[in-house]
């Protein structure tokens, strides 16, 4: 029984991280109707920025509260910039072209990011590209056991990741449904041509949405890296795909749906690993996706929309 509880706990903690990445997919899909394949790789870049800045600060500074906050903010800012650049130069010129071009561009962008980080390059002693070797993320948050109930162990990292994730999600929900910018986002999502006619700066809204999603991804990436995962250039592909699966399970374009889908996926994966199938973990995530698409292609919360011809 306590075994089960522990798995549920771990699964939920893993799920919240997927949720943050999945929110980026969902938001971008909402405004652009495009699945940003490069989203996971933007997250990976964010993790490397966090890694580099934590290393720069040194162990003592980076593990203080201010230091950790700075690491997060820096990497989120860098990713927002990266997201802006990708949107501006790769996606915006193709917005009115056939959808297939945007899909191919997104795939190409993802491939470009993840594999250029596998190269090693430095410029005047400064490492520009890190190379393929996996690295351990600096221990900016020291592992502590905060709570033991029976045999169930709750660590500070789990609590922190859940709290940070919930806070970011709450903020996002507020932004989308309670602010003028959120209203503009929803209008663009509903129909970007009409939104433009109503005086909404469509380009700016889309760019900001991209930046917001990328920043969320960076935050998620660092939370993910802090929990015992190695940093490596291809991490974005795996996490990105899983978060995408989660977004589809919840119903793509639906904010709470992405969260619920992510928690489901986190739990399913944790149970597969916990009950003896760690090598099957990745296959299960995709199997889950295929099953959802088969039986409920619109996702848990999605609505079936008639296609406009």
């Amino acid at each position: 029984m306590s075994d089960l509880l522990q798995h549920v706990l771990n699964g939920l903690a893993a799920g919240t991280i997927y949720a943050l990445v999945a929110l980026g997919y969902t938001m971008v899909y909402g405004v652009l109707k495009l699945i940003n394949f490069a989203h996971g790789d933007v997250m990976m870049v964010g993790v490397y920025v966090g890694y580099a800045s934590a290393k720069q600060m040194g162990r003592d500074t980076s593990s203080s509260f201010l230091g950790v906050t700075l690491v997060f903010l820096l990497s989120m800012a860098m990713c927002a910039a990266l997201g802006f650049l990708i949107e501006r130069f790769a996606y915006r010129p193709l917005r009115d072209k056939p959808k297939l071009t945007a899909l191919i561009t997104a795939i190409g962008m993802s491939f470009f990011l993840s594999y250029s980080f596998q190269l090693e390059a430095s410029l005047g002693g400064l490492t520009v590209l890190p190379g393929a070797a996996p690295r351990a993320f600096p221990d900016v948050i020291t592992s502590q056991v905060w709570l033991i109930i029976g045999d169930v162990v709750v660590s500070n990292k789990q609590v922190i990741s859940v709290v940070v994730a919930l806070a970011l999600m709450g903020g996002l929900q507020f932004l989308v449904f309670r602010t003028r910018f959120g209203m503009a986002m929803r209008a663009v999502s509903f129909d970007h041509r009409t939104a433009g006619l109503m005086g909404i700066p469509v380009d700016r809204v889309i760019a900001l949405t991209f930046m917001l999603g990328s920043a969320l991804a960076a935050g998620a990436g660092i939370l993910y890296a802090i929990k015992d995962t190695l940093v490596q250039p291809l991490m974005g592909v795996t996490v990105g795909l899983k978060a995408f699966v989660a977004a589809v399970i919840g119903g793509i374009g639906h904010v709470p749906g992405a969260v619920v889908g992510s928690l489901c996926l986190g739990l399913v994966e944790e149970f597969v690993v916990g009950y003896g199938g760690s090598t099957w973990r990745d296959a299960v995530a995709f199997g889950f996706l295929i099953a959802v698409l088969l039986f409920r292609p619109e996702g848990i919360f999605g609505r079936v929309t008639a296609e406009k011809v």
């Binding site: 945007a102 191919i104 491939f111 470009f112 250029s116």
Partner: peptide
């Protein structure tokens, strides 16, 4: 990485 870039530039 060049393949990825090639896809983007081609599109």
């Amino acid at each position: 990485p060049l393949y990825g870039l090639l896809l983007v530039v081609l599109m």
